[in-house]
Amino acid sequence: MTELRIAIVGFGKIARDQHVGAIAAVPGAMLAAIASRNASLPGVPHFATVEELLEKGPQIDAVSLCTPPQVRRAQAAAALAAGKHVMLEKPPGIGVAELDPLIAMATEAKRTLFATWHSRHAPSVEPAREWLVARRLKSVHINWKEDVRVWHPGQAWIWEPGGLGVFDPGINALSILTRILPKPVFVTAAELAFPANCQSPIAANLTLTDIDGLPITAEFDFRQTGPQSWDILVETDEGRMTLSRGGRIMAVDGKVVADAPDEEYRELYRHFVKLAATGASDVDLAPLRLVADAFLLGKRNIVEPFVD
């Protein structure tokens, strides 16, 4: 098998914690270079920018964009124009419309554009989807609360326009929701809490539904201390199905029926290798559309300033 030579662009926490190890563990993938202004990896060719990488770097087939979403569109366009396959960390961009030209570029160039939703690859997401399809759903509640100081320490970009704030983790829940439910959902109301010194929300409450009126609520909060909460609860005519630990554990009426080790990022790269082999793309924007609608519909409340 010819290896897919991948350059990571943006070498922050998520790239170091997840992407490097995932690439090393996936047959058919190899880490060929890194582009980052602030960090490097011993033994791996390093460049300051994606432009320098494309001009002066070693031969690569693909780039994995792990930079903040505010700059990803231009980087993706440069890579596609240079004939490279592109993987986008979530969220794929700062808006929905900016993805359309990238999709068109990828199609014309016969190159892969992969908008990743790593939480969809949590081990119990597919078992949950399969279980729910045969049941009548009564209600859904998402409880997604974590400590931003633990998961995004010193990452000022997340509080800027386009950084999404609490929707950076919240979109993970929405990516699972849009995978496991049998029908498309949409936002009907939202309430967003903005710190007085930030441009993105620190907490959000959403009301959603589907075409049949299924009641769906979501609570997102970046201020959680102590135990963290990444749970989706679905009431059905055959009991309560719970996805916990971000989709790792599935239980029905409290009994665990699915639990396995986390290989989310390895699954992303396995899929990326397969897509790149044929130049196919995978760009599902449903989770991003829900976030965009939450901003459109959301009532905005100003809360105390956030100090990292």
Results as ranks from 00 to 15, higher is better:
107 T>C: 02
98 E>R: 02
162 G>R: 13
168 D>I: 12
161 P>S: 09
168 D>F: 14
128 A>T: 14
182 P>E: 09
136 R>F: 07
75 Q>Y: 01
151 W>F: 14
133 V>S: 12
139 S>H: 05
119 S>T: 10
119 S>E: 11
165 G>K: 04
153 P>L: 10
106 A>C: 05
158 I>Q: 03
119 S>C: 04
95 G>H: 04
98 E>W: 04
99 L>N: 03
125 V>E: 02
149 R>M: 12
153 P>W: 08
144 W>K: 07
183 K>C: 07
162 G>E: 08
175 S>D: 08
114 F>E: 01
94 I>H: 07
134 A>V: 15
167 F>N: 03
121 H>L: 05
165 G>P: 09
81 A>S: 11
181 L>T: 08
105 M>W: 00
150 V>I: 14
151 W>I: 13
151 W>P: 01
75 Q>R: 07
102 L>H: 01
150 V>F: 06
72 R>P: 08
83 G>S: 01
93 G>E: 03
96 V>A: 03
121 H>T: 02
177 L>T: 14
139 S>Q: 12
116 T>H: 06
152 H>Q: 12
71 V>P: 03
154 G>F: 13
104 A>H: 07
150 V>W: 01
179 R>N: 11
121 H>Y: 15
124 S>N: 08
123 P>Y: 04
148 V>K: 14
120 R>A: 00
87 M>Y: 15
154 G>E: 09
137 L>M: 03
115 A>E: 06
100 D>P: 00
164 L>H: 11
169 P>H: 12
160 E>R: 13
114 F>Q: 03
135 R>A: 11
151 W>A: 00
97 A>F: 08
79 A>F: 03
133 V>E: 13
164 L>Q: 07
103 I>L: 06
99 L>G: 04
139 S>K: 14
119 S>R: 09
102 L>W: 00
143 N>F: 05
91 P>N: 01
163 G>A: 10
158 I>V: 10
164 L>C: 00
95 G>K: 07
127 P>G: 06
134 A>F: 09
85 H>W: 05
153 P>F: 08
138 K>I: 10
75 Q>V: 02
111 R>W: 05
156 A>R: 01
111 R>Q: 12
114 F>T: 02
182 P>K: 10
85 H>G: 00
143 N>D: 13
151 W>G: 03
128 A>G: 06
158 I>D: 05
176 I>G: 05
76 A>R: 08
80 L>W: 11
128 A>S: 06
159 W>E: 03
110 K>D: 03
150 V>D: 08
183 K>M: 13
140 V>D: 04
142 I>T: 03
158 I>S: 01
142 I>R: 10
94 I>L: 08
118 H>P: 13
121 H>I: 00
170 G>C: 15
133 V>M: 06
161 P>K: 09
175 S>C: 04
144 W>T: 02
108 E>D: 12
81 A>Y: 01
